[in-house]
Design a protein around this nucleic acid. Structure first.
Lengths: 341, 341
DNA sequence: ATTGAAAAGAGGTACGCTCCTCATTTATGG
DNA sequence: CCATAAATGAGGAGCGTACCTCTTTTCAAT
């Protein structure tokens, strides 16, 4: 008993193959009654279109663009390499992916890029950019042009994007908070650092972190966020200062990119060995820091899954297929030295 | 520029399509020199066979059997449902999957099943069964019959299985140990329970757990493993007894299935609220227990990935394709209340 | 040079589907 | 009831690959 084909549907519905094709592909010129007949036959036989055969016949090409932050961030780098990997594997069959790097700090450059890419016909776009009104407008224009849009890592919930692929960042912050509270033993002060609070993910993480600390660890006090803005010297200065001044400091929570500069800053400090350090994203730097006991835990998202998920979602959006939410929901990974992948 | 096809290879290598086909499919009757010529053309053009077109032409059907433990275990249940889910999506991929349930305690029944399934031609088998010499022999017979064999969750390293899909269980034990040590604050006694030490995964987890405790938390003492053997009364009796007797008890580590009975037993005890409980596998029971603060952390493996990975590996084995180890390496997930998926 | 097997070429059919054309049937309004 | 448009049927080509048969070429051993 093999899968039913279009021929079986035609026979079952008592119509010709051409009509089945017209119905399945929503082509015009079929009576309502006939459409129903065909759909019933499809339902009865449990027909599922062989997408691969279909794409083969259709000579379908999915043209996607990934817009990723430029700059030195190791996370963006690992995203880029995951993209290359996905591209090489069959997950990307009949898919042409182009990566575009944008300066994260320049909203106008981002918008210009978004307008530029959609010059040539493209089917979908995945983007990881900070939230600005201009970007929202650019997304609206892409949607008007019929392009599928997914946001990556950091969501743009008030835009017309179709889907968000990434972790729930407030939950990630809560997980970090829970671990921090338990690891430090429930008392002391926590320094929170990030690269920039302009991107939504940082804000959400901070929110979740504070929520858990306030509720479950009231004796721990969390200091205001410190923004490093990709400036190693600034980071070093602040960290050194806080460690020196704050005798009750027991932990550091690094919410965003810029772990490298934080680690650099911590290494110069004697007391840092006794601080609990929790950071985000698994990169070469955080991985090594875990091994060296410089970081106690990393909250991460699997970049491979992230990319594959984005591609799957974009493809489903292009074909108007349903998205399996459960499969696309990314897990918040807690990585210790012991369960390093 | 679209992907090169067999025709392009033929042109590039200066041979006929038939010869390209012979080379690509390792058919006999081609001179060494010609094989090289074709392979060079493949390399030069970066040709990758379109697997879907190939499978379409080949009318390939992958027939796989999953042998899973019968019985009340919730983990096996979630495996089965993950399998059903995968089946629904893999249907688009010319794969027929059958699930067979075996009584985990009866090696002879398992062997009989393994012999039974391979009566009809099948291409691959994935199994999660305890390690016995009879099972090893049965696997050897399957291999002789040309069936691809992967072990699931619990490995059978001394058998002729082709691949193991599952987490590194000693690393999982180490992760549990690390969390336990930090959560309890570095001192006290830990009760370790499991359903049975007969399956390899339990043994390996215990090994890893002890390793970390001895090295990083020398002031914590770990009590000998207690085996429940699916007997709720036995579990309740032992847990109650240990809690009553051992005043220094600060944590419980549940290494295998049988979390439900443990939770049941813990609920009857007043002191249990202050015990750190770490368990394995995310099921309805452990999930609820996390939410209710009855369990502090769960060490888990993603059953969806597990199943999909097994299917991918089986398919690669059938087609003699390389296995992307990195993609198939399952992550050890640390699940807290906060990052529950 | 002849023979014979091995190697290579040529060409066709099929897989499930899309998309095209052209012929034929059916429904609808005048 | 006929003209007309709409709906449907019939059939074919092609997507990239596999696999089959039948011929032709190549090359070494005689």
């Amino acid at each position: 008993m093999s899968r039913p084909t279009v021929h079986d549907i035609a026979k079952e519905a008592g119509v010709s193959l051409a009509t089945v094709d017209r119905v399945l592909n929503a082509r015009p010129g079929v009576r309502e009654k006939t459409i129903t007949k065909v759909q019933e036959a499809v339902a009865r036989l449990g027909y599922v279109r062989d997408t691969y055969a279909a794409n083969l016949a259709r000579q379908r090409q999915y043209r996607f663009v990934f817009v990723l932050p430029d700059g030195p961030g190791q996370f963006a780098q690992s995203l880029r390499s995951a993209l290359h990997e996905a591209y090489a594997s069959q997950i990307a069959d009949r898919t042409v992916i182009r990566t575009v790097r944008v300066p994260i700090g320049d909203p106008h450059a981002i918008v210009r890029t978004l307008q530029g890419v959609h010059a040539d016909g493209l089917d979908g776009i995945a983007l990881m950019v900070p939230e600005t009104p201009q970007v929202r407008d650019a997304i609206a224009r892409l949607k008007d042009a019929g392009v599928a849009v997914v946001t990556l890592v950091s969501d743009l919930p008030n835009s017309r994007r179709d889907f968000f692929v990434g972790i729930n960042n407030s939950a990630a912050g809560r997980a970090a908070g829970s671990l921090m509270g338990r690891f430090v033993g429930g008392r002391g002060e926590i320094l929170v650092v990030t690269n920039s609070l302009r991107s939504r993910d940082s804000v959400e993480r901070r929110f979740g972190f504070d929520e858990v600390m306030a509720r479950d660890f009231p004796s721990v006090s969390v200091l205001p966020s410190v923004e490093a803005h990709d400036d190693p010297l600034r980071m070093a200065r602040i960290v050194t200062e806080v460690i020196a001044r704050r005798k009750a400091l027991v932990g550091v929570y690094s919410m965003g990119s810029g772990n490298l500069t934080l680690l650099e800053a911590l290494r110069g400090n004697r007391r840092s060995g006794r601080l609990v350090v929790i950071a985000h994203e698994l990169t070469a730097a955080t991985r090594q820091a875990l091994i060296d006991d410089e970081i106690d835990a990393v909250i991460a998202q699997n970049v491979g899954h992230l990319i594959r998920s984005a591609i799957r979602v974009l493809r489903s959006l292009c074909d108007d297929l349903p998205i399996y939410e459960a499969q696309e929901r990314l897990r918040i990974e807690v990585v210790l030295k012991e369960n390093l992948p």
